[in-house]
Write a protein that binds this DNA or RNA. Structure first.
Lengths: 193, 193
DNA sequence: TCGTTTAGTTGAACTTGTTCAACTATTTTC
DNA sequence: GAAAATAGTTGAACAAGTTCAACTAAACGA
């Protein structure tokens, strides 16, 4: 079944009834995204929340100097959206681009609200999911402040080897917050040692 | 009434009934914390979630080199806790210290769960609150990657002048991710210009 | 398969931020 | 109110990371 991955993701504790699982999934529509296609572009309003069935996405901003800044990568089994744009119906600062041919399940803003009304435990599910996300963001900040670029790189490829292996160095460097030239020098240093 | 600030914080949309407001507040206990006292210390389990009635707190880690890293400051009307420790009942990596004599309302883990069960809209309230928090963390990351220390300092004192004015330079620098010596040099540069 | 774009590498000069040490100013404590 | 601790300042030497430019390697499109 196509929705097995989604159900596993949302209901690892088995709190949903069969009916609730089915209703939950019914709100989502599957979409295929080819490599390099943008699921969301800076300036658009993010009208959906997404769950990655297959493939990988990069969520990034472009600052006033034209530098790309990657917030995160979303591979299989990850959620993705611009929360601020989705919540507040305002133009997004983010770009969401497929790094390879990918499949996502999308739910619209309106259906998400209906879902919360109709399946109260979904409210808890996402509350907990967002809590975990905050923990991850806090840890990332601390790493950015306390580790060198070389240490952050080592941490990244150690923590997310599957994702890291799909990336160009430019994508990796935009996640780490360094230039791609410097990443190249870091990689050389790590080889020699 | 002592709980006016809390009610205003949680129910700006007026979705709570009078009874629900009262029940919500009843779970919280007020506590006075004197300047420099730790509400939570690294290694302890965070057994409560807090809401600041008055004063100001600093939430920070100490890394392996002994450097302090400030995650955020929580002034009047802010929430504070170690989410990871609170959720997972595990020893905290964080320190939470009062910067001045302060008052907080605390709710225990157990009561927080009861509250979610008993007042379903609280689930939504915190879900939305956590979403907003993620947006703030994402923006902070982008600023850290795309702005210089001087620009980050200017942004910080511009965005949170009341909090910034209460801090020592060492506390400010640990939030910005720079040394206090360098902050001193930045301040000098800004004076001259 | 050739030509073009895009990605990665390297070096030199540069900028940003750190470290350490010595000093001054301010708070805290008894 | 003196002593002690803590906070802020400054400079010099240093380390981390950037910029720019020139080059090589790989991927992509017609």
């Amino acid at each position: 079944m196509i929705n097995d991955l989604l159900i596993e993701n949302i209901d690892e504790d088995g709190q949903f009834s069969k009916t609730q699982q089915e209703e939950f999934c019914a709100y989502f529509q599957q979409r295929t995204i080819t490599k390099k296609t943008f699921l969301l572009e800076q300036g658009e309003v993010c009208k959906w929340e997404g769950f990655v069935l297959d493939g990988c996405f990069r969520i990034f901003t472009i600052d006033k100097n034209g530098n790309e800044n990657t917030l995160y990568f979303a591979a299989k089994n990850w959620w993705l959206m611009d929360i601020d744009s989705f919540m507040n119906h305002k133009p997004s600062d983010l770009n969401i681009q497929a790094l390879e041919d990918s499949k996502v399940l999308l739910i619209s803003q309106k259906d998400k609200l209906t879902l919360y009304e109709s399946i109260p435990i979904a409210e808890k599910l996402f509350r907990v999911m967002f809590q975990k996300s905050i923990v991850a963001w806090q840890r990332r900040l601390v790493r950015n402040h306390s580790l060198t670029a070389k240490e952050r790189y080592a941490h990244f490829i150690g923590s997310y080897p599957e994702i890291a292996s799909k990336l160009t160095d430019r994508q990796t460097s935009s996640y780490l917050g360094i230039t791609h030239e410097f990443l190249s020098k870091i990689k050389k240093q790590l080889q020699i040692q």
